[in-house]
Design a protein around this nucleic acid. Structure first.
Lengths: 335, 335
DNA sequence: AAATTGTTCGAAAACGTTTTATAATTTTTA
DNA sequence: TAAAAATTATAAAACGTTTTCGAACAATTT
């Protein structure tokens, strides 16, 4: 590996001069600068990030904390999209991204230790159990954190506007004439709570009764548990006319349950998904759903994290809320 | 940040002794070792990865090269699964993972330079244009590379067994009585070539004619282009009785085209997907498809890369081929 | 002509480690 | 008991940078 030293020898100047020339300091003559740059290129010089990090205490590395909640990790339908844009935005700003984990060689260490150890400048927390002790420790630490769809006190965060998006969906369904609107929601989380709040408060606002038997729980992106929940709703003596589902993938389970019950969508019953995956408009029935703006969420998270890293004295801590988009389609019919 | 120095002062020993105690060298007394370890814990010491990397030239960092081919990047249906298991396997072996890109601060640098710069010990190339000049340069360089579903001369690789899996699918379809089997394949790539080879050679093997009009191209995971291709096949005067598709997501396009043509699956025509996504068994019709073993592919890739990093003198270069699994279902009917 | 300012450069310390070579001490062997 | 061997510790160099401080000199101002 060719170092700054090699350049200095070849050019007959000191290492400090080379360093300065390379880093655009002004106190180096135009001629020597050109010489240094030229021989650096000739020698195929590549700087050493670790030496630099050691000296400057800057690594330009962002960590991502991303733990399989249902062991789907990186393949998570929603978060993988968020991450993808997070990555793009970060890289466009000259930051590297890496994953935080608990391993150091053969040993197990703390998430926070992993960050300190590797000099990670800030971390994006997505898709983890926020009650996990080590996650809490990290969030409370001095390393800047932004979280997605969850609020850690004292940390930046970017939130998908689940509450209002859900409210909009409910209002739309209402406008289509539905009065008996059920909601199969995902397992408990900040997101689920927000959606439930949006659902409940909008029902009230519209003068509809909130019925416990219309609110069932399922796992996210799990068609099987959603099928079970749908079956329960269909067996109700006062059956809902519309079922709101946890997400688009779950919708396959609901569709199956409904078809097996000999009912037709949307003639006999309506459904709506959530997420707006590509094929939601291609399956039969075409799904009414809510598209979350994953691209914006990821980019805002990266921008926020970088801002907070570069302005440690007055970081932005107010939640950034990103609105989704209602995609109406044939799965919700007029009643 | 507390350093080795601080510990040495507190313990009244030299830094070298502390370093040795921490790293399990044998030439340090049992008593001093205990003292060092104890005060290290007390002081909340965390080693500095960069200082260590500078000295040892080891970073335990694997790079992932992963470029949006259709701008889907991390959300790629197949590669995100492969990556997920790659990440797990790597972390379990004490390696970190990070993404390779072309940025260094405000400047644009080479992929190879990025690796050198950051001391990346090996890279996994997945989902990129293999003809890209910089990718080639990286593959030819001295940094260990393993590729997924592509062969770079002189590099390790892990391949999904597309050729044989495809052959098995064709044979199955044949066994169901089909003789006019069309194949809508994805855009040109190593994977596509393998599948076409499997398709063509198996047809020949079975004594069937290979008909150019039965081989159409579409984009992967793009229901729209697949719909168009399907329509073309349906308009053929000697229509196929079975259509093999590029993947499960594309299947939605094919299903739509078939339904719009007033045909029923599998009574009038059969289809088969590829990938075996979760909901392939839930859509109507339930899809016959091939599940690629993404978990094994990712893990094997990580193991191979780590092996080659740790055995630079005799790296394993023979392709590792991972077999898929045929998932038969109702979308292919008896004829 | 002296004093001031500006420009270009280099020496050296520092960042936090690892590791080699050697010294000091203790234990074992003859 | 002396010599040899084993044990434990340290000093110091090195890894590749950045950055402070001051030196040397030239250019400008008084």
């Amino acid at each position: 590996m060719v170092s700054i030293r090699d350049i200095s020898i070849k050019c007959g100047v000191s290492v400090s001069t080379v360093s300065k020339a390379l880093n655009g300091y002004k106190d180096v003559g135009e001629e020597t600068r050109r010489l240094v740059l030229k021989t650096a290129k000739e020698l195929g010089y590549v700087p050493n990030a670790h030496a630099r990090a050691l000296k400057t205490n800057r690594t330009f590395t962002l960590g991502i904390l991303f733990v399989d909640d249902q062991n789907n990790g990186l393949t998570h339908l929603y978060f993988s999209h968020v991450l993808n844009s997070f990555k793009s935005e970060a890289e466009e700003n000259g930051y590297n991204i890496t994953f935080i984990h608990k391993r150091w060689g053969k040993q197990t260490i703390t998430l926070l230790q992993n960050c300190k150890f590797r000099g990670i400048e800030g971390v994006c927390i997505a898709c983890v159990d926020p009650n996990d002790h080590e996650v809490q420790e990290l969030a409370k630490s001095d390393v800047p954190v932004v979280s997605i769809d969850y609020i850690f006190p004292g940390c930046g965060c970017v939130l998908s506007d689940n509450r209002n998006d859900m409210a909009e969906l409910v209002r739309y369904v209402y406008s289509m004439g539905h009065r008996k609107i059920a909601f199969i929601h995902g397992t408990d989380s900040y997101v689920t709570q927000q959606r439930i709040e949006g659902y409940v408060s909008t029902l009230r606002e519209l003068g509809l009764e909130v019925r416990q038997e219309y609110m069932l729980e399922s796992l996210y992106t799990n068609p099987y548990t959603t099928k079970k929940a749908t079956e329960k709703l269909l067996q109700l003596e006062d059956r809902p006319t519309c079922i709101l589902l946890p997400d688009d993938v779950s919708a396959f389970g609901a569709i199956e349950a409904i078809q097996e019950a000999g009912l037709k969508i949307p003639d006999d019953i309506s459904i709506a998904g959530y997420d707006g995956v590509v094929y939601s408009r291609l399956i039969s029935p075409r799904l009414t759903t809510v598209r979350q703006d994953t691209d914006k969420i990821g980019r805002e998270a990266a921008k926020l994290l970088i801002y907070n890293i570069e302005h440690p004295q007055n970081p932005k801590l107010e939640p950034i809320i990103v609105k989704g988009e209602l995609l109406t389609n044939q799965s919700v019919g007029l009643v």
